[in-house]
Each structure stands twice: as structure tokens, then as C-alpha cells.
Amino acid sequence: MGDRPLSEGRLIVRARDGDQRAYRELVEQNQTIAFRVAWAITGSAADAEDAAQDGFLKAFGALPRFRDGAPFRPWLLRIVANEAHNRRASTERRGRLALRVAEERRADDAVPSPEAALLDSERRDRLLAAVSRLGDRDRLAIVCRYLLELSEAEMAAAMRCRPGTVKSRLARALAHLRREIGETDG
């Protein structure tokens, strides 16, 4: 592959020509976010791994249709998200995404945070419980935006909607979340 790392654009061109090593680099660069998006959709690490693998394989086959210069990550995430949504629809286990808190952080709870940069444990638990009670669409919007920090284009890919509707979907999810935790605007 040469000494200097190739740009994403060059990797895509090479992968499109059948260079599997170039495609492997693209997979390595994007596997974490692809897996996390699939996890947010399926609620299962095992299903997410399968969906991400299948998505990467399909994306390789679809590379000839990838438009040069377009952002790669939203395009890839749409394919992975499709796999994850389909897997969730067909799998016999339809568990909800279970959000857990790291044990280490729990240990830190005893130490007051000077800038109040940590959520107090009671509020955190209420918030987690409320997010868990949301409907699938609302929860996915919240998780994609705040936990995975996706861009609007990436959120649209994960939620299988147009980028123009991401803001309204997120606003609706936040409104539902406020209602769940018993708080209202104003």
C-alpha cells in the first residue's frame, strides 16, 4: 500500500477496483461506528456484529455505485443500518437496547465533581430509565445524537430517513423524553 497512508478517496477508488487490502483499511476505519450504530438498532452485540459484517460485505459489492466525492460514512452507515433494521425485524429476540452505566463511574459517584461535570447518580438513573422506556424510533434518535454523536447525515442513515427530517425527529424524541422523566418545557 506504500509508506504514506492513503486518503479515504484513494482507498475507495482502489477498493472499487477490487483491492481487498484497501477495503480492509476502510473497514478498520469505520468498524467501530458501524458496529455501534448496528448495536443501537438491534440492541444486541451479536446481532450488531453480524449486521456490520454483512453491511461491509454488501457495501463492497455496491462500491461501483458509490458517487465520487460523496461522504463515505453516511453511505456506508445506511447499508449497515439497513442490515441491522432487517435483522431486528426478522430475529426472534426483539430485546430493547439495554443501556448500562459503567461500574467504574459508579465508584466515582462518591467524589463530588467540582464543575458538576458528572451527572449525579439519581438523575442519571432517571434519565437512563426514561430513555429505555422510549419507543424504538425516539430512543434511536437520542442514542445516535447524544451517545454516538452522529452528524445529521449519519443520523439520517441510521434512522432510514431523509436528512431534512432528522431535526424534527430529534425534537419529537426530546419532547417524549421530557414527558417520560416528568418534566416539561418552560
Binding site: 458496529f35 459484517q53 463511574r105 451527572l119 445524537r145 447524544y146
Partner: peptide
């Protein structure tokens, strides 16, 4: 608060997808 929650929530470790895809 949601942004702060990100630091606390456990996200599963990413498996080695690249190897299996290859």
C-alpha cells in the same frame, strides 16, 4: 445531561470486524 450521560453509558467493545470481513 444527555451529553454527560455519554461518559457513563457502557457501549460494547467493537469486535474485530475487519478480520472476519476479509
Amino acid at each position: 445531561d444527555l451529553q454527560l450521560l455519554r461518559r457513563d453509558v457502557v457501549v460494547p467493545d467493537t469486535p474485530d470486524i475487519a478480520d472476519e470481513v476479509a
